[in-house]
Amino acid sequence: MQLKSWLARVAVPLGLILAGVAVAVYFVENPGGAMAARVLSYPKVIRLINEHLLMVVVSSSLAIAAAVPLGILISRPALRVLGIIIENIINVAQTVPSLAVLALFMTILGLGFKTAVFALWLYSLLPILRNTYAGIKSVPPDVIEAARGMGMTPLRILTRIELPLAYPIVMAGIRTAVVVNVGTATLASFIGAGGLGMMIISGISVSRPTLVLCGALLSAIMAILFDNVLGQVENYLLDRG
């Protein structure tokens, strides 16, 4: 029984990883011309996947580490005004297109991997911060009032009432941020950060659809994989309470 549920959990991520490997192997074996073959070699494909993963993982985890505590902080009643101001700033900032964000930071920080990670970090910070704040704010006031009236300390109210109730909304923010991040990371190739975007860009510039397709499939699989894994983490933590 336990083995079965465990298998069910790993089946989808494992399947996605296998699909990714299959895609990579297929395109390396069938590059469709010498031009594409130059990009589609095993070491190069692995390197691009690694770069992409690294960009996404580093920027996303730093964004979670910064946005969740910050979201909690600005949701405190003492910082109510600051919270509203930041919420409005986020709402405007989120409409700024991802390409513009990358381009803007390139003009400030120059080309390269670090610039890309910074821009991706900032861009995924927004949805997580907003959802953390909104999630905590969505806890009904009567629930907080009852908890306060019963003598729970503010810290206990946060850990036992507010965070558990905000949790699904926070997780939704994290999932959105990471999925968007995988896509945005393809644009990071324009500012010299490498990653799967390289495959797509070279494919477009030398008119080799196989390259574009390979990059597209690999990054789409990566996005779905992250979404699935995070969804399972969400359910796992929810079960454990």
Partner: peptide, 30 residues
């Protein structure tokens, strides 16, 4: 105030039951 409130029962119109906790867990709060 925390000490004070732990020794005063409190019921409000909206009740304010914690929606993520079971009935038993709600009653066990204090």
């Amino acid at each position: 105030p925390i000490e004070l409130r732990l020794n005063i029962g409190y019921v409000i119109q909206e009740i304010g039951l914690f929606p993520h906790l079971t009935i038993a867990e709600n009653v066990a709060t204090v």
